[in-house]
Amino acid sequence: MDVKKFKETALGGVLSNPVFILVLGMCPTIAKSTNITDAFALGLATAFVLVFSNIFVSALRKVIPDKVRLPAYIIIIATFVTIVQMFIEAFLPALNGSIGEFIPLIVVNCIILARAESFASKNGIGYSALDGASMGIGFVLSICLLGAIRQTLAAAGMKVFATTPGGFIVLGLLMALFNSLLRMHKEGLRKKLVKEGE
């Protein structure tokens, strides 16, 4: 096993975080991060679809003709989205009321299509599943963090943070914080390597 590739894939959810770094899937991220419950549920649904669509796209990558790869990915993604929708309708009707309208939209979530196109279609099943899980967890944590902050601020009386513009403000601040922390970490690593080289 290629340890370097494994590490890179496993840390993909942080180093290439779909929300704070790649800025993908903004519509559900902003729309359903007004409270942590909805954010967690939608994040989990997206992560499930991400993992399984990555596995299927990877497994079928050699039989899908290049020219019809996008419709093929959409069919695969839509299948798993439908399964998630059926599950929520059957077992979680209350949740269906709050995030139900956003579940079908997972089909066109850029994160899923981007991972299928840029990773799963070029890598084996194991790495694709790992990438899906890593990106999925990264998305769940990001949307939950955003949801927790917006919910807390709105509960403290700052109702603007429950609105879409407020959501963008919190997201922008979190992106700035996340990117500067990541840059500081990378800089620290670089300095350490230089020191070791000397």
């Binding site: 039989v63 069919i75 839509a78 299948t79 059926m86």
Partner: peptide, 22 residues
Amino acid sequence: AALIAIAVVSVVLLALANRFFP
């Protein structure tokens, strides 16, 4: 043919899933 095959697999998966949901 590839698209039809994928669609058939999807339908089978959904039919199976449908059997398990009350």
